Amino acid sequence: MHDSDANDEDETLAESVLVEAIENQLEAGEPAVTQAVLNKLTLVGHPRDEAVHLMALVLADEVKQMMRDDRPFDGERYERLLRDLPDLPEAGE
Rank of each mutant, 00 (worst) to 15 (best):
M1P: 10
M1T: 14
M1W: 11
M1S: 13
D3G: 12
A6Y: 15
A6W: 13
A6I: 13
N7D: 14
N7C: 12
N7L: 12
D8F: 14
D8L: 15
D10R: 15
E11D: 15
E11L: 11
T12C: 12
T12R: 11
L13P: 05
L13Q: 04
A14S: 09
E15Q: 11
S16G: 09
S16Q: 14
S16V: 13
V17K: 15
L18D: 07
L18W: 08
L18E: 08
V19F: 12
V19Y: 13
V19Q: 10
V19L: 14
E20Q: 14
E20F: 14
E23K: 13
E23G: 08
E23W: 10
N24P: 13
Q25V: 10
Q25G: 11
Q25S: 14
E27A: 12
E30L: 09
E30D: 12
A32W: 13
A32D: 15
V33H: 06
V33Y: 04
V33P: 04
T34G: 04
Q35I: 05
V37N: 03
V37W: 00
L38I: 08
N39S: 11
K40Q: 11
K40Y: 11
L41E: 03
L41T: 03
L41W: 06
T42A: 04
L43H: 04
L43S: 08
V44P: 03
G45M: 04
H46C: 06
H46P: 01
R48Y: 05
E50Y: 11
E50P: 06
E50W: 10
V52K: 02
H53F: 13
L54W: 02
M55H: 03
A56Q: 00
V58H: 00
V58N: 00
V58F: 02
L59N: 01
L59Y: 01
A60P: 04
D61P: 02
D61V: 02
D61H: 08
D61E: 06
E62K: 01
E62F: 02
V63N: 05
K64A: 06
K64T: 07
Q65I: 06
M66H: 01
M66G: 00
R68C: 05
D69C: 07
D70G: 09
D70H: 04
D70P: 08
R71P: 02
R71S: 04
P72L: 08
F73L: 04
F73S: 00
F73T: 01
G75A: 01
R77L: 01
R80Q: 12
R80M: 11
R80G: 06
L81P: 00
L81H: 05
R83M: 09
D84A: 07
L85W: 08
L85C: 08
L85F: 10
D87W: 13
P89T: 06
P89F: 07
A91G: 14
G92F: 10
G92N: 13
G92H: 12
E93F: 06
E93P: 06
E93V: 05
